[in-house]
Write a protein that binds this DNA or RNA. Structure first.
Lengths: 139, 139
DNA sequence: CAGTATCCAGCTAGATACTG
DNA sequence: CAGTATCTAGCTGGATACTG
């Protein structure tokens, strides 16, 4: 087992690191937000598309977020529901009707995300300019 | 080629979607932030580890962010430098000395990110509680 | 309509080895 | 010290097909 020492050290370092990440609430939030579709669903339900926050049906979301697969939409919706950020309401009409909407908690998160969006709008052209300069001097 | 119609439609939808993402500055920012190490590097240089923002050497970062591979650290550093969020200073001493520090732009981004962190600290236990409730009713 | 289940391609990121 | 280069395992997410 002496040959495992290096690998074990690696594994332990990784375990410690994972524990650190696991304890860190910001990291968890970031992981959620970094899911490709989470923010877009938040934006859709938050009213970024038509002005006012409102409930939406599964198929509406699917249409609005062109490019999302059923799998990812369902997965995203489930994750957000699990976290209490959106609520799911099923109405037992003949073809079932399911509506999703932002909870107050989800709304508050969306508010914070909009702050990020504001930063992006204010500073993203600076970033892009830097990028262009950097790329030019690299060539 | 008639058999390609469906695939073509998909491809076109994807292209349109990509174009949408490409135009959206918030999305770009989110993509950057969602890189596992970006925020941690920002935090390290922003002074989250010892109180005051300061420059750090490559090897210091590497030690501080236990678990990061050389590849990812370099990649992350390059990306942030390219975007003008951090600056790289090489001092031609005998073994080269390279220092990284936050630019004003990087500092302002880090400030915004701290707002997210604040949300996480304020609301993450709510989220966790919802998660527990959800999981319990699922079983 | 609103999903669930399965399979698989592509990209990401870690391990490893080498360099100015 | 501070990287660069390469190879590959594993996970993410898309396509596809089926169901209450």
């Amino acid at each position: 087992m002496a040959t495992m020492t290096a690998a074990q050290k690696k594994a332990q370092a990784k375990a410690e690191y994972d524990a650190f990440l696991d304890v860190c609430p910001s990291r968890k939030l970031l992981d959620r937000l970094s899911d490709k579709w989470v923010v877009l669903v938040l934006a859709a339900l938050g009213g970024d598309c038509d002005g006012t926050p409102q409930g939406m049906r599964y198929s509406e979301l699917s249409r609005l977020l062109a490019g999302v697969s059923q799998k990812m939409l369902t997965q995203t919706l489930r994750a957000l529901e699990r976290d209490g950020l959106i609520s799911r309401t099923a109405t037992p009409t003949v073809p079932v009707t399911v509506t999703y909407e932002l909870t107050p908690l989800g709304g508050s998160l969306y508010g914070t995300v909009r702050a990020l969006k504001a930063w992006a709008q204010d500073h993203m052209d600076d970033v892009l300019a830097h990028r262009a300069t950097y790329d030019a001097s690299e060539a």
